[in-house]
Design a protein around this nucleic acid. Structure first.
Length: 550
RNA sequence: GUCCCUAUCGUCUAGAGGCCUAGGACACAAGAUUCUCAUUCUUGGAACACGGGUUCGACUCCCGUUAGGGAUACCA
């Protein structure tokens, strides 16, 4: 019995059967097949969404196929529920694979299974083939042995790694291998590299162009002792069988490129086209670093959901990061779907971009400003349902009132206000419209007191208040009151002759603004009054008696 | 240590040897708009990391330095 049969005693599918099962994809010329291949080790990273978005766009723009593959070959790091989270995050952001796994764990598509853990026998069939071809061998090195090897290499100044004469188990005889196997010594399968480190090879990358590498001479592990393949091997097998034409992935894989190309060749496969994209980074002190799962809450896509950024805002921000001409396109096509924008892989930045919340906010404000009051209500209501029960209740019990609040300077306005960047901002904007959440702080009260004749002005206004006043009619009343009590009709006039006036009309309006909203800054006061209704307005105005006693 | 990638305003970037006195967006500052804020409009400040080449000419090409990032696992 050969050592190969000892390693794989159970029958495995034949290479021919596998190759026959995975038919060549029948797609029109120029169609691209891309994939997103996350490992279920925690939450969905914003960088994962970024890559997925790019892959999805590239495939679908070319009438190709975009699929999802779960890379769960590291059973130790796998986190319960992570696969589900990946699927739901993708569908949340409307990045929908044509093949893969849905949120319920249901697989779909003709090139599955799409979970690597379910493809074990396929990988093993190819591993066996590699062994038969003499392109791989079992290695019995223990962790201690490998540590020692590394130390020795460091001491002698040699390049660390398992290669050439350092590769202790590379040239074991059949009998030696069988002895170890019989003794039950754990082993891995290593690739028997024919590469020469002193040879230079050139590889083409879709973004970085031609890259020079030394040839790979490392005998990399391709099958772990648990019988599952490593990333490198699974990548080569899966992307071949699944017909991936374009591999778009993070540039942390760039250095493994010589190995991957070498593996494709060893198996007689044609490698796909590669594009390595730079990660999204953030500023940390005065150096940049990758957004980290452990330290940065904004690394988790759920963060953007939880604070209430519209999904499209996140997507458009990411698109803007990918292709900076997106914003130009968006300005010229304000109502088109982002899917009509043609994303160009070549236009991606070869260096990593810093995540910029200020820019995200700007994009998000634009998007929210474009929503009608009705849409904003529906979207924020949906958000509140999941994330803010207090706001949810408020909106549910006062839906018409909240809708009219959201209409202020939106419905019928030339340019809607751009002061809401995320749904969680809404609470603060609508709070003071509700009597049980409205109050005036002491320092605002003293601001009213500081304005001469404030009590008389309010009393006068109460007499002439009319709920149906137009904006102009309301403002005329402010002007009338101003001149009656010695305030200039505008700032210019006041500045010209400050000694002639007690202030200008803005001081008069300020009394009402504070009385009605508790704030010194607010949207248009006449619209606010109309929205609040006369009873509420008059009640609040009458509070002047409690603020300024005779 | 070794290998690989990257380097333009504060940020994202345009830039394919002369269209560059380096353009745009965000942010910031100033001004304008019958009220504050938010809009909107106008204006402004703000960058080719450094040193060598190549060339009539370099932000652009080459080499080095520096800085940042990545890889160097039975992790992906």
């Amino acid at each position: 019995m050969s050592f190969i049969d000892r390693i794989f005693p159970n029958p495995l599918p034949s290479i021919d059967d596998i190759l026959n099962k995975y038919k060549k994809r029948n797609l029109p010329e120029g169609s691209k097949v891309t994939r997103i291949a996350p490992s279920p080790t925690g939450f969905m990273h914003i960088g994962g969404i970024y890559t997925a978005l790019i892959c999805e766009r590239v495939a679908h723009q070319s009438n190709g196929v975009f699929f999802l593959r779960i890379e769960d070959t590291d059973t130790k790091r796998e986190v319960e529920g992570a696969t589900k989270l990946i699927c739901s995050s993708l569908s949340n952001y409307n990045i929908l694979p044509d093949e893969g796994i849905d949120s319920n764990g249901q697989e779909f598509g003709d090139y599955g299974p799409y979970k690597q853990s379910e493809r074990k026998s396929i990988y093993q069939a190819f591993i066996k083939y590699m062994l038969e071809q003499g392109k791989a061998y079992p290695c019995f090195a223990t962790t201690e042995e490998l540590d020692e090897l590394r130390k020795k290499q460091e001491l002698s100044g040699a390049r660390p790694g398992y290669y050439s004469h350092w590769a202790k188990y590379r040239n074991l005889s059949e009998t030696q291998i069988l002895e170890k196997l019989d003794a039950g010594i754990p082993f891995v399968i290593r690739f028997k590299s024919e590469g020469n480190y002193n040879n230079k090879i050139v590889i083409q990358d879709g973004l970085k162009g031609k890259i020079n590498f030394p040839e790979n001479d490392l005998d990399v592990v391709i099958m772990k002792s648990d019988g599952l393949p490593t990333y490198h091997f699974a990548h080569v097998i899966d992307d071949t069988l699944m017909g991936t034409t374009h591999v778009i992935r993070g540039d942390e894989w760039l250095s493994s490129l010589p190995l991957h190309i070498q593996l494709f060749k060893a198996l007689g496969f044609t490698p796909p086209k590669y594009t390595h994209i730079s990660p999204i980074q953030k500023m940390d002190g005065d150096s940049r670093r990758k957004l980290s799962k452990r330290h940065d809450p904004e690394a988790d896509v759920r963060y953007y959901d939880s604070v209430g950024y519209p999904k499209d805002a996140v997507i458009e921000y990411l698109l803007n990061l990918a292709n900076s001409n997106f914003e130009y396109w968006r300005r010229n096509n304000p109502s088109k779907s982002y899917k009509d924008f043609n994303l160009e892989l070549k236009k991606l930045s070869p260096s990593g971009a810093l995540f910029d919340f200020v820019k995200l906010n700007n994009i998000s404000k634009e998007i929210i400003a474009k929503m009608s009051a009705e849409e904003l209500f529906i979207n924020s209501f949906e958000w509140a349902k999941q994330n803010d029960s207090e706001l949810y209740l408020l909106m549910q019990q006062n839906s018409d009132y909240v809708k009219s609040i959201l209409s202020i300077e939106r419905t019928g306005a030339k340019n809607a206000r751009k002061d809401i960047a995320k749904y969680s901002d809404i609470k603060e904007e609508i709070k003071y419209f509700f009597d049980d959440r409205f109050s005036i702080s002491d320092d605002k009260i003293s601001e009213i007191k500081d304005i001469p004749s404030s009590k008389e002005i309010v009393k006068d206004y109460i007499e002439i208040f009319n709920e149906t006043d137009t904006n102009q009619e309301w403002f005329n009343k402010m002007l009338t009151l101003s001149s009656k009590y010695g305030f200039a009709k505008n700032a210019k006039e006041y500045k010209l002759n400050p000694s002639n006036y007690k202030g200008d009309v803005s001081s008069v309006v300020k009394i009402f603004r504070i009385l009605l909203t508790g704030k010194t800054q607010s949207p248009d006061l006449s619209e606010i009054q109309k929205t609040m209704g006369s009873t509420r307005v008059l009640n609040r105005l009458k509070q002047i008696d409690n603020i300024i006693k005779d």
